[in-house]
């Protein structure tokens, strides 16, 4: 009974979300695009970083690769084919750098991932300026905000669904073992590198597609625009706020923070960077495990010490 109810609830949710743009105006549709982008990026980030506990700042590297691929290939092939190529490039880059760097641990990986975004950006800049003698590309693909939203929604469903599947299977166990103690996991027979690589590539694929899907909204693309490090920071903050180790955690972080940032740019334009930093500090100190964890603990407290058992009945 329960699985059927859950499946029905999820189907209804997706159908409801898909119908939303038909009831809101143009600005509402734009908000939905931004919101769904936040959900996708935070979920994709948590897909890899949540269970493995590898903090990645490479989100924008893949996001930018996606957007740039669209800019380069626009008018040469249909949009669907461009998305496929972008996804392939994203996965290829993830595998390449993953193989080389996923053996790095802790802060070294953080620094590397931050550097990766900068590296990709500089390579593209160098290539465009010294080989093509130009910088900045135009994208004239006519896609409505609603169409972009639907694609992002499908992507969000795919990312969250993938994570759900992973958590249920053997791969989920392996991943959590890595997050708890990598050395123990290795001794227990988990092929640590392969598992990490697979997750990193999946997460990169989603990020790449998110950038590619949205690129037609911007008309003009140049490295400084699509490789904006803020994209990496906000995805990370959102996932942390909700709780990166949980399936719905990133969603619960992305939605309120997105509206919070939107409200900020309306009411306090100019203070964004300061507030972003403060939010980060507040999250790390007050809700290190995310709001979902906090809510669950609160719930358990009010229900008494045995309330936790009820969940397993």
């Amino acid at each position: 009974m329960r699985p059927a109810v859950s499946a029905l609830a999820c189907a209804l949710l997706v159908a409801g979300l898909a119908a939303l743009p038909l009831f809101v105006g143009g600005y509402g549709q734009g908000v939905l695009v931004g919101l769904m982008n936040a959900v996708v990026l935070a979920s994709a980030w948590a897909l890899f970083s949540g269970p493995t506990k590898y903090v990645s700042l490479a989100t924008v590297a893949f996001f930018g690769i996606g957007a740039y691929t669209v800019a380069v290939l626009t008018e040469t092939m249909p949009f669907g084919a461009i998305l496929a190529v972008a996804g392939a490039i994203g996965v290829a880059v993830a595998l390449l750098v993953g193989l080389a760097t996923l053996r790095l641990a802790g802060v070294y990986f953080v620094i590397f991932s931050f550097g990766l975004a900068e590296l990709v950006r500089q390579i593209i800049t160098w290539f465009e300026t010294s080989v093509n003698r130009t910088l900045g590309r135009y994208i004239f693909i006519d896609l409505s905000a609603t169409a972009i939203y639907w694609m992002l929604l499908a992507l969000a469903v795919a990312v969250i669904g993938t994570r759900w599947l992973i958590e249920r299977g053997r791969l989920g166990l392996a991943v959590h073992a890595i997050g708890d103690d990598e050395i123990v996991a290795r001794h227990a027979g988990v092929d640590v590198t392969k598992v990490k690589l697979a997750l990193f590539a999946l997460s990169a694929l989603a990020m790449t597609l998110a950038g590619a899907i949205q690129a037609p909204r911007w008309t003009y693309v140049e490295p400084s625009i699509v490789f904006n490090p803020n994209i990496s920071f906000t995805a990370l903050i959102m996932a942390l706020l909700g709780g990166a180790t949980r399936l719905w955690g990133p969603v619960f972080g992305a939605v309120p923070l997105f509206f919070f940032f939107e409200w900020l740019s309306v009411t306090m334009p100019g203070q964004f960077s300061i507030v972003l930093g403060l939010t980060f500090i507040v999250i790390v100190f007050l809700v290190p495990n995310g709001v979902l964890d906090l809510a669950e603990k609160g719930l358990r407290k009010t229900r008494g010490p045995n309330a936790g058992d009820a969940r397993h009945v």
Partner: peptide
């Protein structure tokens, strides 16, 4: 998981 999935959804 399913309960959580439901609540989350």
């Amino acid at each position: 998981m399913n309960r959580r999935t439901f609540v989350g959804a």
